[in-house]
Design a protein around this nucleic acid. Structure first.
Lengths: 214, 214
DNA sequence: GTATCAATCAATGAAATAATTGAATGATGG
DNA sequence: CCATCATTCAATTATTTCATTGATTGATAC
């Protein structure tokens, strides 16, 4: 063991974690382990790997402490490790699902309105355009959250009411929608709805609190 | 290559995503981009990379659609991509933090107090214990954010001031720290600091706005 | 136009990773 | 103890990734 000596840098540690799940076979193995613990051979056949190969991948996962083992007779049972392993995999899957969804929406005859599907806008951009007065901020969070704090000048129309209150939004300005976090589904859906109604809309990629706490 | 034929397999896609973040430099770059968009050279110097190297890492991130670009004159500004990029990074960080805490608690003579390191507390739990009066809420966000809204009864001590103002916290109560989002680093560090000072601390896993917008 | 600056591209060699093979453990049962 | 089964280890080759170098593109200013 040459490495893992002093304290590996945090970024290094995180990179190791990411590398551990950066292989389709290992993801498949983890997928199987999410359901239930299992012995090596069962995993290998399930994922379609040779026994030795599966074993090696599993050991990589074990080195990253994403799985644990338990011996029972001749067999070694693998199970998910401690900590938010599942959550991490879910986050990865969420990201992937989002991207696939995006890609799928490009293929069919989505009209021109969909050319830049969900383009974001950054904070620096925003300030420029706000000061030029050609954009309007739209806060799509529930009223209670808006009341607690919002970007100065933003209009509040909760997502659920958006369709009904479209007329409140000026037609001649671009709309920048935002919600809670750097990525919150609310604003994505809001932008989709607005574009569907023929408006020009983007979302603030960083969301509200990144705006607040520069 | 028998697999990965017609539709790029989901696992392959996810593995690509994971590979994209499986390098310490790329993680650092993303970290910088979480704060705000930035041009290439600025990013390169910030993370201590050569220009060309930074550019190449950024392009890998772009290929994975984890970042987007925008040209402004001679400069190219990178920003986080669409989708739950931030959430994914937070989940990774959360996993890493968990493991480091685990490891740290094994080395020195941590008594029984450290059995469940970095454990989070859920909202339901919280309400129960708040009403029993044996916990105290600690908001570790900057004052401005606290002023915009906070959990009723919470004390505000920004993370930077925490060490200096430890005496403001009663010794006989458990502390529940929270910050912005479900996985904001602030509360993780706060809990670590508090435990280092001998307090009993947990973090509110869901963060502030999850609290607000049930 | 030419000069200049930011960023990307292309090519190199060094290093890490992946899948396969066959040999070595480790636990069980006669 | 010997045979057997499940798993791991070790060694091989092919492939991929990484950082550096120097050349190239793209946009601006003169």
């Amino acid at each position: 063991m040459p490495s893992a000596t002093t304290p590996p840098d945090l970024q290094d540690h995180l990179a190791n974690l990411a590398r551990a799940i950066a292989h389709p076979h290992r993801l498949s193995l983890l997928d199987a382990l999410i359901e239930d613990e299992s012995a090596v051979e069962a995993l290998a056949t399930r994922v379609g790997l040779s026994l030795a190969n599966a074993s090696q991948h599993l050991q990589q996962l074990k080195r990253a402490q994403l799985v644990q083992t338990r011996r029972e007779g001749k067999q070694v049972f693998y199970r998910l490790g401690d900590g938010p392993v599942f959550e991490m995999l879910c986050a990865l899957r969420d990201m992937g699902s989002y991207q696939r969804q995006q890609r799928a929406s490009l293929l069919p005859g989505h009209g021109e309105s969909q050319v830049r599907p969900l383009e974001g806008i950054s904070r620096r951009d925003l300030h420029t355009r706000l000061s030029e007065g050609d954009v309007i901020m739209l806060d799509v969070r529930p009223e209670a959250e808006y009341a607690e704090g919002h970007i100065p000048g933003a209009i509040n129309i909760p997502l659920e009411e958006l369709r009904a209150r479209l007329s409140e939004l000026p037609r001649d300005q671009d709309i920048v929608a935002y919600c809670r976090g750097p990525y919150c589904r609310l604003s994505v859906e809001a932008v989709a709805a607005l574009k569907g109604a023929g408006r020009t809309a983007k979302r603030l990629t960083t969301g509200y609190y990144a705006y607040e706490c520069s």
